[in-house]
Amino acid sequence: MGERVPCEFFLIRYVPDVVKGEFTNIGVVLREATGGGESLVRFTRDWSRVRCMDADADIGLLEGLEGEIASRLAVGVSAKDPKAVMEVLEDSLSNSLQMSPAGACLAENMASEMELLMRMYVEPLRVARPRTKTGRAAIAGAMRTEFERAGVWGLMRKRIGASMYTRAGDPMRIDCGYRATELVRMFQAVSLEGDVEGAKGLAYSAASLREGVGRVEGVSLELTAVVEPLREVSELEDEAMERYRFGVEAMEREAIRVVTVNDLARAAATARMELQV
């Protein structure tokens, strides 16, 4: 077993009524205690406790704060002073978001320590067996897991609005992406096990996205669709197999790179190299 790294962590709390002082933990900031080392932030994916405390809570805004805090941490703004994170919280929801005093821990590695802290302090206890994610949700979860394992998830853009590249009103959002030196890479989870509407929608938007990235970013776009492996649908009826092939071919005709979840480790390794992690 390798030497454990001294770390400190902060809990991010949602406080809908400052007078009552009731709160629920919604996230964790974890960093190496020496300063200047690795820093991570993770928010909950289960907002049920927040909704129970505050039915009018702006969940979209809370979800967006994770990326904003990660960006601050990535550039080292808060390497020595956690007040930079507090500035993000205060600018967003005033006193409705608070950060706990620092806690100490020893991490064998940052990713596993973050998982442990989330289970201990943030995620609600599960009495019943959680539902297994399927379809697009399962693919998106696999994408996040691999990019987090490579240490690049915090450096990537998430939920990228297509409208900034196509036209106002375009509702499509791309799951994640990043800017390499001469290229923008974007990744979209597309499930082909049920229907092919997601594949058709991405294929329809590909040309406009590509043109828009060239215009706005001044570089080319590599758009990647991540799908289930063919063997996962191989036992389905012939019609389902035909839909799968149709979806893949529809995307490849529009120069969309199609990979399966089995290829994500390779994509994450490339991202790690290009983002110089």
Rank of each mutant, 00 (worst) to 15 (best):
F23P: 03
I26A: 07
G27E: 13
G27I: 02
V28W: 06
V29L: 02
V29C: 02
V29H: 00
L30I: 00
R31H: 13
R31G: 03
R31W: 07
E32Y: 11
E32K: 13
E32H: 12
E32N: 11
A33F: 03
T34N: 02
G35W: 01
G35A: 07
G36L: 01
G36S: 09
G36R: 11
G37M: 01
E38K: 15
S39G: 05
V41P: 06
R42L: 00
R42C: 10
F43E: 14
F43K: 14
F43C: 13
T44L: 04
T44V: 07
T44R: 00
T44I: 06
R45K: 15
D46E: 04
W47C: 06
W47L: 05
W47H: 08
W47T: 00
R49T: 10
V50L: 08
R51N: 08
C52K: 15
C52R: 14
M53Y: 08
D54L: 01
D54T: 01
A55F: 04
A55H: 04
D56L: 01
A57W: 05
A57N: 02
A57H: 04
D58R: 01
I59K: 03
G60K: 06
L61E: 06
L61A: 02
L62M: 11
L62R: 09
E63Y: 03
G64C: 06
L65C: 06
L65Y: 09
E66P: 09
E68R: 10
I69H: 07
I69E: 11
A70R: 10
A70K: 11
R72K: 15
L73F: 12
L73I: 05
A74H: 12
V75K: 13
V75R: 15
V75T: 11
V77D: 12
V77C: 03
V77W: 10
A79P: 10
K80A: 06
K80C: 00
K80L: 15
D81A: 09
P82K: 07
P82V: 04
A84E: 14
V85D: 14
M86W: 10
E87F: 10
V88I: 09
V88F: 02
L89M: 05
E90Y: 10
D91T: 04
D91E: 12
D91Y: 07
D91F: 02
S92F: 08
S92W: 07
L93H: 01
L93F: 06
S94E: 10
S94L: 05
S94Q: 03
N95I: 06
S96R: 13
S96E: 03
S96I: 01
L97T: 00
Q98S: 13
M99Q: 08
S100H: 13
A102D: 13
G103H: 02
G103A: 00
L106H: 09
L106N: 10
L106T: 00
L106F: 09
N109A: 03
M110P: 11
M110D: 07
A111R: 15
A111P: 10
S112A: 10
S112W: 07
S112Y: 04
S112Q: 14
E113K: 14
E113C: 09
M114T: 14
L116T: 11
L116G: 01
L117E: 05
L117C: 05
M118W: 13
R119H: 04
R119Q: 15
R119W: 01
M120S: 01
Y121K: 03
V122I: 15
V122W: 05
E123A: 06
P124N: 07
